[in-house]
Amino acid sequence: MDLSLSTRTVGDRTIVEVGGEIDVYTAPKLREQLVELVNDGSYHLVVDMEGVDFLDSTGLGVLVGGLKRVRAHEGSLRLVCNQERILKIFRITGLTKVFPIHTSVDEAVAATD
């Protein structure tokens, strides 16, 4: 399965809905999407990963890169994920401390630091 991406806005947040597999082949597409959003002035991103079947370190790298970009504009990047197998990758790499991870898009949209 390939990567699917769609975006929508809720208030000042931009929701990026990701589906499929994020790996060394597809991660560049996600990177492009995040870069484009930031270049267009969207600095508060919520990446909804509920439809993601697979995530590897290349995908983690892209998310970290996205976080770095939004932070340069005092923005935020929040993740929505309930899948244990995906959460596990964030845990073993220590990235649960870096990304706010929410259980629903509503929760992520409502969150303020």
Binding site: D56, S57, L60, G61, I89, I92, T93
Partner: peptide, 14 residues
């Protein structure tokens, strides 16, 4: 290189 190292970190964690 960084990505490769991150990959290794994931493997050793798993």
């Amino acid at each position: 290189d960084d990505e490769g190292e991150m990959g290794l970190a994931v493997i050793s964690g798993l």
